[in-house]
Design a protein around this nucleic acid. Structure first.
Lengths: 230, 230
DNA sequence: ATTTTATACTGATTTACATCATGATATTTA
DNA sequence: TAAATATCATGATGTAAATCAGTATAAAAT
């Protein structure tokens, strides 16, 4: 990670936008910005906690591994989003890994400063609390899905989530460049199974492909796959 | 749920213990206490949010279902713990269900009062923030486990978590009366599979049974099952 | 006390999904 | 621009865990 300067920092910075304006100089004094390239690891699970990170631009995957070669992507952090905040009040090591999947710029402030920020900016703390409660709802839904929902439904849900977070290109494709392996890891399944499921969804006219890009052709039906029967 | 009065309320109440003492009269004025019996449903996923709940005594399971008959237990709330807090900043319906598995007394305050409490008691909000971050780490670990860890490891981890939360009886058994079905739902597997796995663990001398009660005979080896090879 | 209902137990069978194997395209690096 | 390395594609095979199908036992309700 290479240190860089950002222009117009107050406008793009997650902390600046959500804290008291009197606190901004303190933020700018503590914040460090880094350029990350595609595939670059920002931190790994087990690493000592440096601080809390923010995405200025680019996309970061938050993931957790099992064994040598099994990983699960928990979420994607994109422009304006925070990551690494699960380390709050923890045991001093990251419980998850963070890896850039699109080159960009990330910032971080050390844990101590972040904790002070929370104590000084009670409104920000309140907002973060709401955000964590939301994160928890998403996480618990995912746990339930991986436990009981078939892969087809999980892939459908993954695609809908990606569409919601990254939107569509002009020609209607989900606006993220994601490897099939990452889509599989995000769905909690293997590459091969996800590959087959996508083919099924295409032959059922729920999806359309254009190279790696995916377009949702029938949102209604795709969405129905994420609902249970009961 | 039958409304009841609790004696010595300030001593046992989660809110009273964590808020400004000046705020305690407000809490007592808003808090409602209910007696729940074993098996009683406190709220179901999809129900409109009433408020945030606390366990005075007894045990409450927090769970989420899929289809007609598949459920996953996310956590157990016991004495002094909060539940229903995932509803914070949500869409007004519970994302999870809460059911008493041991009779006891639960309290609740309505959402509006809870939100005011958070704004007035910034220390409490900070503590809750740390708690939510912890919840998130646990939840994401569970997601990873269900996705990649074999059932044997998940059962081992479930038993260790139960031991940590509920402790041991005098004769060394995990101090919770839990149906096999609930243990299975907590492990994210079926009754039959968990049953077989437990038998395996017994024949490997990692567990000892006494009726429904379970004792961990070899913590080291059991713990090893929850670690990955890499 | 006796019917009803829930929980526990266990073998046989099925299946969804992972794993393995192998070739074809891309994409990156030298 | 060639060599090396990812990513993509697809069939064949294996297996962990779910489902199914019963009996047994315990707890609740009448």
């Amino acid at each position: 990670m290479k240190k860089v300067a950002i222009i117009d920092e107050e406008k793009t910075c997650f902390l600046c936008k959500n804290c008291l304006k009197e606190w901004i100089p303190a933020i700018l004094a503590h914040k460090k910005n880094y350029k990350v390239k595609k595939g670059e690891i920002i931190f790994k699970e087990g690493d000592p906690v440096k601080g809390i990170f923010f995405v200025n631009n680019g996309i970061v995957k938050v993931h957790k591994r099992w064994g040598a070669d099994k990983e699960l992507i928990l979420r994607f952090a994109s422009e304006g989003m925070v990551f690494g905040h699960r380390a709050l009040g923890g045991d001093g090591v990251y419980s998850i890994s963070a890896t850039a999947i699109q080159a960009g710029i990330v910032s971080y402030v050390d844990m101590e400063f972040f904790e002070t920020t929370l104590k000084v900016n009670t409104d920000f703390a309140y907002k973060l609390l709401m955000f964590l409660a939301y994160d928890l709802r998403v996480s618990e839904r995912k746990t339930r899905n991986v436990a009981h929902m078939p892969v087809k439904g999980r892939v459908a849900e993954a695609l809908i989530m990606l569409k919601d977070q990254f939107g569509l290109t002009d020609d209607g494709y989900i606006n993220i460049e994601l490897s099939r392996q990452d889509l599989a890891s995000f769905s909690g399944a293997t590459y091969e199974t996800v590959f087959r499921v996508i083919n099924e969804l295409i032959s059922e006219n729920l999806l359309v492909l254009s190279g790696k890009r995916i377009s949702i052709a029938n949102f209604e039906k795709l969405s129905k796959l994420t609902e249970d029967a009961a």
